[in-house]
Every structure is written in C-alpha cells, then in structure tokens.
Nucleic acid binder design. Structure first.
Length: 371
RNA sequence: GGGUCGGUGGCGGAGUGGUCAAUCGCACCUGACUGUAAAUCAGGCGACGUAAGUCUACGGGGGUUCAAAUCCCUCCCGGCCCA
C-alpha cells in the first residue's frame, strides 16, 4: 500500500439514534437479529450500528408487525444506529444467481419468497416506503447488482437501471419526508449505490449520474471480488476517488479484514459483512498475530491475523486460550479444546462465543486502522 | 439340547452369483464462506501408488463356479422361540 496515497478520513455521522464516527463496521442483522447474538453480546463486541434487510423483514415478520410496534428499533429494542439495505442485494443473490427465483424488469422486481415460494413485487418506491416504515437511520436505494462476469453490455444495462431506480428512490424519499413531516435533524440518510462491475468507465459514469441526483452517501455495489475471489483493489480505489469528498462512502459487503484496511485507505468510511458472524458460526476464528500486542501501530503490509478452524481435530486437546490479545468472553475464559468440543457437539454456545469474538476482532480492527 | 433368524468397513445399516473396494446415514479428516435462502456447502474416508493399477477384504475354515459378501458344508458368536 502506498502510504502517500492514503485517503484515510474520519467523519462524524449524525442520526436520530445518535452519532457515530467513521470508520465503522456493521454486522448484518438481516432479519433484525445477528444470528445467535443478543444485544448484550453485540455491545460486548463494541458494535455501534447494524444492517437490517428490507426484503427479509418485509417477508418476515412482515410490515404489519413492524407497524404495530412503530418501527424496527422498538421491535428489536436495539436503540443504536440501524441501516437498512434495500433488497438490492437479493436481486443478485436470489435472482441473478437463480433466475427461477424471480424476475427483474426496468419497472420492478418480482421475488419468489425463499420462505414459502410466494411472489412479491418490489419497486424502488416500495423499498423506500418499507425503509421509512422500518424507521431506520440510514437507508439504501434499490439497485441491480449483476454478477461481475456478465458481458459489459449487461453490466451497463444494470447501471442504467440502478440510476433510474435511484432517481425514483430519491423522489419517493422526498415524498415520504414531506408526508411524514420529518424534520431535517431526524431524517434518515439516503445512499445511492454505484454499479459498473469491473469496468472503471461504467463505475465513473454511474457515480456521475448518481451525484446529479444527489445522496448523503454512496455505496459500492455488486461484488468487490472477481470470479477467483481476488479483491478488486483498483476498482475500489478509483471509485472512491470518483465520489464527492463530502459524501459518505459505504463499501457494502466488504469484507475480509485486509480488504477493509485497504478500502479505508482509499477513502471508504463504512463497512458491513457476514464474514465474522457466518464464519464464526462455522467454526472459523480470527486470531490476532503477535504484532497486535505492540501498542498503536499495526503494520498492515504484513499479515496481521490468522484464521483457524475450530473443527480441526488438532484442537481436541489444545488447552491454550484462543487469542491472547483479546478480551472477549471466549478468550478470557475458555480453551481451544473446549470450544472445539462445543463445535463437535453442535452446541449453539460455541457459535455464539465465536461470533462475539470475531465481531470484537472487527471492532478492534476499526480502531487500529484509524491510527 | 432342539428350532429359527442373523453375523458386512469406527458405528448403524443396504446389497443376496458377475456392473462390489461394496448404496446410504453417522462419526472422522480437509476445504470454502465477502450489502446472509448459509448452525451451510464441497471434497476425502481399506492398504500401497502422483496415476493407470495392484493387493487384502463382507465372523473362521473348507467347497461349488469361469466368477462368491451373495450358493453349499462345517465351526465359532449373538437374538428370539421351544424343551
């Protein structure tokens, strides 16, 4: 990483649920909870904001329930910051990857519910309405994230559609602000999403058009890795440069720790990813390397962590603590052998402790990268 | 003692003359996981070999057959029934 080119920045975001300083990492609480974790666990892991999902909450528990309790904060009792994703990612993960799961048109998206197969129409307007009903602090425009290996003309099509939808989202957003009489202090922040796959010219074009519409922040859309799983460094670096300096930059779905480190240095402010929790549930633990013990500076050019798989038989009689530099419940109290035993026994407590630990690792990383 | 059913890889359990080194599940070993259809998915799992392949295997022994986990005899072991 060329340090002289670092675009690191620190910003304060003000929302109706409080302030937060960038950079920060949000775990995915897709259905309103981070799988297996309580809010005590999340606070323990120093989590200050989370991402919920418009489409998944709309399907379950459904907006009728959310209405009755007046919003997702009340329903979950999580009083800190919430950002809702629009359902755009499900256009990719459900439909682009599995065309029988729905249909995308310029006008709308027809989703086939993965829960019961029922059909649901989501328009950009509806996505925004749902997000207002959820009452979140930050919201995202419905977008169309195509797989990166689509031919360029199909990526362009997705870019055009994303821009058109962003315009409709912005209009609906303004309509809802007026209709609900939300003052400027309390208004949720709105994010547009930049598409364009691995094509810089398309990314640049998409940014230009989105900025014309005008958003509080901009997200990096679609996958930030290529078909082989390589991080698209140059695309992320360049896209951040295209974006206005005074806007928020949200690297959706990023990512692995080293990718977050890079993105932050390119000027991205916010991150979310399922990795720490999903891999935690699957027994994969992030361990700080010795360099962490040195106060302050971490050399991110070197490998600063390692992954271990608690399911591996070699931990059966490994009575060492997990991570000697971590102060989470798991590392302070239990051995590798004991955690291995929990995973072997399919004990949910193992998943929970591993998820808390991995999130704490991510939270600590967000502090380290500021230095 | 008589009758009867059965003994298959770490376990459970298919297979009942060739396509069987043997379906499947569990266990075990190893991967993967990136805006969560994921407490999920993929691969491996007799020995030796990179491989083609070779060898040893379906309770023990013997036999029939070109060919046996599969048929016959016998022994050992277990369940159930009768005495």
């Amino acid at each position: 990483m060329r340090k002289e080119e670092s675009k690191k920045r620190i910003k304060i975001i003000k929302t109706k649920s409080g302030e937060i300083q960038t950079p920060f990492f949000m775990p995915d609480a897709t259905r309103g909870f981070v799988k297996s974790l309580s809010f005590f666990d999340l606070k323990e892991a120093k989590i200050k904001a989370m991402v919920v999902n418009t489409y998944h909450l709309y399907l379950q528990p459904g907006m009728e329930i959310i209405h009755q309790v007046k919003g997702i904060h009340n329903f979950t009792n999580w009083k800190r910051i919430l950002l809702s994703d629009s359902g755009g990612y499900q256009v990719f993960s459900l439909i682009h990857k599995n065309p029988q799961m729905g249909k995308i048109t310029d006008r709308e998206v027809i989703f086939k519910s993965p829960i019961d197969g029922s059909l649901h129409k989501i328009t950009p307007e509806k996505s925004i309405q749902i997000q207002f009903d959820l009452g979140v602090d930050m919201m995202v425009c419905l977008d169309d994230p195509p797989p990166n290996d689509y031919p360029k003309e199909k990526i362009l099509k997705a870019v055009e559609r994303t821009i058109a939808w962003a315009k409709r989202c912005k209009e609906e957003y303004e309509k809802q602000i007026e209709k609900r009489k939300i003052n400027s202090e309390k208004r949720p922040l709105l994010f547009g999403v930049v598409q364009g796959g691995e094509h810089l010219d398309l990314r640049q074009y998409c940014v230009k058009e989105l900025v014309k519409i005008g958003f509080d922040g901009y997200g990096f859309g679609a996958r930030h890795i290529d078909a082989e799983g390589n991080f698209l460094e140059e695309i992320l670096r360049a896209t951040a440069k295209f974006l206005p300096e005074n806007s928020l930059r949200f690297a959706l779905g990023v990512g692995k720790p080293e990718d977050i480190v890079k993105c932050f240095s390119y000027g991205w402010d916010m991150f979310d990813c399922v990795i720490p929790t999903r891999e935690g549930r699957h027994g994969r633990i992030f361990l700080r390397k010795d360099s962490w013990k040195k106060e302050n500076n971490l050399n991110f050019d070197e490998k600063f962590y390692e992954n271990i798989n608690m399911n591996n038989g070699k931990y059966k009689n490994d009575f060492k603590p997990l991570d000697k530099f971590c102060d989470c419940e798991l590392c302070q109290n239990y051995t590798r052998a004991y955690l291995h035993h929990m995973f072997s026994s399919k004990e949910p407590l193992g998943m929970r402790l591993a998820s808390i630990h991995n999130l704490k690792f991510y939270s600590d990383l967000m502090e380290k990268i500021k230095i």
